[in-house]
Amino acid sequence: MADYTVSQNREQQVKKLKRFLEGWRLALLLLKSILLWEQQWCPCAIVGSVSFLYSLIWLLDLNALATFAVIGLFLNFVDFIVPVVCKSLYVPTAWTGQHEKTFEEVCKSIVTTYNKSLHNVRQFYSLRETSPCMYYILSISFLMTLAWVASFINNIFLMYILSTVLLLTPGVRHRGIINTLLTMVNMAPKSTKSE
Rank of each mutant, 00 (worst) to 15 (best):
M1H: 08
T5D: 13
T5L: 15
T5P: 00
Q8T: 08
N9S: 10
R10E: 07
Q12F: 01
Q12W: 07
K15A: 09
K15R: 08
K18E: 13
G23S: 05
W24S: 03
R25K: 15
R25H: 12
R25Q: 12
L26G: 06
L26P: 01
A27V: 04
A27G: 05
K32E: 14
L35A: 08
L36P: 01
L36T: 12
L36S: 00
L36R: 08
Q39S: 04
C44T: 11
I46G: 07
V47G: 02
S49R: 04
V50M: 04
F52I: 12
F52G: 06
L53P: 00
S55Q: 11
W58D: 08
W58S: 14
D61W: 02
L62S: 05
N63M: 05
T67H: 05
T67Y: 02
F68M: 12
F68V: 07
A69R: 09
V70N: 03
V70G: 06
I71G: 08
I71E: 01
G72I: 07
G72L: 12
F74P: 01
V78E: 09
F80V: 06
I81Q: 09
V82Q: 02
V82N: 03
P83N: 09
V84M: 13
V85D: 08
K87N: 14
S88F: 10
L89H: 08
T93A: 15
T93Q: 15
T93V: 14
W95V: 15
W95N: 11
G97C: 04
G97D: 13
T102G: 06
F103A: 14
E105A: 13
E105K: 15
V106K: 02
V106Q: 03
K108L: 11
V111N: 00
T112Y: 05
T113W: 04
Y114P: 03
K116E: 05
V121N: 02
V121W: 01
V121Y: 02
Q123K: 12
Q123H: 11
Y125G: 03
Y125T: 02
S126G: 04
R128M: 13
E129A: 15
T130L: 13
C133N: 11
Y136F: 15
I137G: 02
I137L: 15
S139G: 15
F152I: 04
I153V: 14
N155H: 01
I156W: 01
I156N: 00
F157C: 00
M159Y: 04
M159F: 10
I161Q: 01
I161H: 03
I161L: 13
L162D: 01
L162H: 04
S163I: 00
T164D: 02
V165Y: 05
V165E: 04
V165D: 02
L166F: 09
L166G: 05
L167Y: 10
P170C: 05
P170F: 03
G171I: 08
V172D: 00
H174P: 00
H174T: 09
H174F: 15
G176N: 12
I178S: 10
I178W: 08
N179T: 13
L182C: 09
T183F: 12
V185S: 06
M187A: 13
A188Y: 10
